[in-house]
Computed example of a mutant assay.
Amino acid sequence: MCKVFPTSLTGAELELFRNRPHKSILDYETLCAIFLTHYCGNKKQKKSIASLFTIRQKKGETLEDFLSRFNMEASEIADCHLATAIETFKLAMIQGTKFHTSLVKYSPPDMQTLNARAQIYIRLEENMAHRAQHATLIMVENKPQEKVLSSKSRRSQHTSAPAIQIPKKGQRTEERITPLRTTLVRLFQENKMKFAAPQPIRQALEQRDKTKHCVYHRDYGHTTND
């Protein structure tokens, strides 16, 4: 073992072996002790239950992200006492939330039950976030129209008979487009399943700008917003 082991060494580890005094390694146990003593500082220290008391749910952090972070920390603790972990989780949560109130009223017997109950409130959070996002999009779409209607009503108060402008033959009418309050990239990522497959870019490949990429066309030549 002492003769075969050095053949697996390279770099600094090989130099450590070579710099040992002549006949200083009497057996394999001595060889192991030399390396273990030299590299003991690299050993990852086990965490104690005290590390859980430093965790706090951040403002704006979702229950799903916080639960994942807490479980990751708890998994690195040897002999983690379940009752202590549950009480620590309650203290780490943002006080007054629906899930926190549920834990205070009915304390779970173990972390498995806590995680299962948390999934219910995670789905509620996701549903509320989806509704809020949907309501925001509706407000963004309707707000410009409300401005247009209010401006028309103000003009109608000052003019008794507003003149109707009829476009001349061959004259293009200006189309009123609702201004976007977000980027096309974000809209595409949130609704990409609703989009049909795009037509390929017709411009020759050698004429395109390779620094610009479009996630909709999945090709180079222009940015997604363009």
Rank of each mutant, 00 (worst) to 15 (best):
Q119H: 01
F195M: 10
T54C: 05
M72Y: 08
P144Q: 05
Q199F: 01
T54M: 10
L137K: 10
E141G: 04
Q199C: 01
G60E: 07
S150H: 06
I166Q: 08
H38A: 13
S51E: 13
K3F: 05
K58Y: 04
E76Y: 09
K194M: 08
N225D: 15
Y216A: 06
Q112A: 13
N115W: 03
V185G: 02
T37R: 13
R176S: 10
V185R: 14
A83F: 06
K152Y: 07
A12P: 11
K59G: 00
A85M: 14
P167R: 12
N191Y: 10
A204E: 13
T30N: 12
D209Y: 00
S160H: 10
H134Q: 09
R117G: 03
R131H: 06
N71I: 03
I201Y: 07
K44D: 05
P109I: 11
A197L: 08
A161K: 11
F35T: 05
S160Y: 06
D226R: 09
H100W: 03
P109N: 15
P179K: 12
A163W: 01
K168S: 12
G170D: 06
V104Y: 01
D219H: 11
Q207F: 09
S150D: 12
A74D: 05
L103F: 02
N71H: 06
K168E: 13
T136V: 02
I166V: 15
S153N: 09
Y39F: 15
M1I: 06
M111H: 02
K168N: 10
S24Q: 13
E29R: 13
P162F: 07
E206T: 09
G221F: 03
C2K: 05
R117D: 10
I120T: 14
L14C: 06
S150P: 00
R69P: 00
I77H: 02
Y220E: 04
L91N: 03
A85L: 11
A83V: 09
S160T: 08
T182H: 05
